Lab assay of single mutants.
Amino acid sequence: EVYKVKIKIERVLPNGEKVEEEITIEVEGMSEEELLALARELAAEPGVRIKEIEIEKLPP
């Protein structure tokens, strides 16, 4: 199964400015739980906050 994972994050820059970013990846052969863990890892940097995680199962 192939999933499209869209992660919206908010990053706080050293000057205090907040910037929103969106990361989209396609992943194959992982469960939804593994995808959530991967998304959290991607956003685990200091000053980064996850705003939204969207997981979509793509048709075969």
Rank of each mutant, 00 (worst) to 15 (best):
A37E: 04
M30L: 07
P46M: 08
E20R: 04
K6H: 05
V19Q: 10
N15T: 12
E41K: 15
V12S: 15
L36M: 12
V5H: 00
G29W: 08
E34T: 14
E21T: 06
E22P: 01
K4Q: 05
E32Q: 11
L58R: 11
A39Q: 04
K8G: 02
E26D: 05
K4C: 03
N15W: 12
E32N: 14
K51R: 12
I9G: 00
Y3H: 02
P59L: 11
K18H: 13
I55F: 10
P46T: 10
L58Q: 06
V48I: 09
K18R: 12
K6I: 12
E41R: 15
I25G: 02
E33P: 11
E20N: 08
I53V: 07
I53H: 00
K51A: 05
A44L: 13
L13W: 05
Y3D: 01
K4M: 07
E26T: 08
R49P: 01
I23T: 02
A44F: 12
A37L: 11
I53C: 02
I9N: 00
L38N: 02
I23D: 00
V12P: 02
N15K: 02
P46D: 04
L13I: 03
E41D: 13
T24V: 14
R49N: 11
S31L: 07
A37W: 13
E56W: 12
K8Y: 15
V19S: 05
L35M: 13
L13E: 03
I23S: 01
A43L: 07
K51W: 15
I50C: 02
V19G: 03
I53A: 01
A37K: 13
Y3S: 02
P60W: 01
V19F: 05
Y3G: 01
N15A: 03
L35S: 08
V27H: 05
G29T: 07
E20F: 05
L42R: 10
E34Q: 15
T24R: 03
E41W: 13
L42W: 15
V5S: 00
K51S: 06
V12C: 04
S31K: 10
I7M: 12
L36S: 04
L58C: 06
E1N: 09
I25V: 07
V5K: 00
I25S: 02
V12N: 09
P60Q: 12
E54S: 14
K8S: 08
V2G: 05
V27E: 03
M30R: 05
A43F: 10
R40A: 04
I25P: 00
V12A: 12
G47F: 04
L13Q: 05
L36N: 05
S31E: 07
N15M: 03
P59E: 11
E56D: 07
N15G: 09
V48A: 04
E26M: 10
I55P: 01
E22I: 12
T24E: 09
L38E: 01
E33W: 15
I7P: 00
A43M: 13
G47S: 07
K57E: 04
R40Q: 05
E28G: 11
E54Y: 15
I25E: 01
K51H: 04
L42N: 02
I23L: 07
E56L: 14
K51V: 14
I9C: 02
E10A: 03
R11T: 02
K57M: 13
M30D: 04
E1W: 15
I50D: 00
L38S: 03
L58V: 07
A43T: 13
L58I: 14
E20D: 12
E17K: 11
I50A: 01
G29S: 12
E26Y: 08
E20C: 06
K57V: 10
K6E: 01
T24K: 08
Y3P: 01
N15S: 11
P14F: 10
E54W: 13
I7S: 00
A44M: 12
R11V: 02
I23A: 01
R40M: 14
E52N: 11
V48E: 02
E56Y: 14
V19N: 04
G16N: 04
K18W: 13
N15Y: 04
K18N: 08
I7V: 08
I50K: 00
S31N: 07
E54P: 00
E22L: 08
E20T: 08
E54A: 09
I53W: 08
G16K: 02
K51M: 14
K4F: 05
E45V: 10
A39M: 14
E34P: 03
I9S: 01
L13M: 09
R40G: 04
V2A: 09
A39E: 02
E54C: 08
V2K: 14
G47I: 01
E41L: 15
R11F: 05
E28C: 05
A44Y: 09
E10Y: 13
R11W: 12
E54F: 13
K51T: 11
L35R: 02
E33F: 15
P60K: 03
E10F: 12
K18S: 11
I25Q: 02
K4R: 13
G29V: 03
A44E: 04
L42C: 05
L13V: 03
P14A: 12
E32A: 10
E34S: 11
L42G: 01
A37Y: 14
M30K: 08
L35W: 08
E21H: 07
Y3Q: 01
E20P: 04
V19H: 09
R49Q: 09
I55E: 00
K6C: 03
L42A: 05
E41Q: 14
L36V: 09
A43G: 09
V48S: 05
E45C: 13
P14H: 12
S31W: 10
T24G: 03
I9W: 13
L36T: 05
S31C: 05
E22T: 12
I50T: 01
R11P: 00
M30N: 11
E21F: 08
V48C: 03
E56K: 11
E28V: 07
V2E: 03
R49I: 10
V5E: 00
A43V: 15
A39T: 06
E41A: 15
A39L: 10
L58H: 10
I50F: 03
S31H: 06
G29P: 07
V12F: 09
L36I: 08
P14G: 09
A37R: 14
P46K: 10
E34I: 15
L42P: 01
P59V: 14
E21K: 03
P59Y: 14
A44G: 12
E26C: 05
A44C: 05
E41C: 14
L38T: 04
V12Y: 08
Y3I: 04
V27L: 10
E20L: 07
G16W: 02
P59D: 04
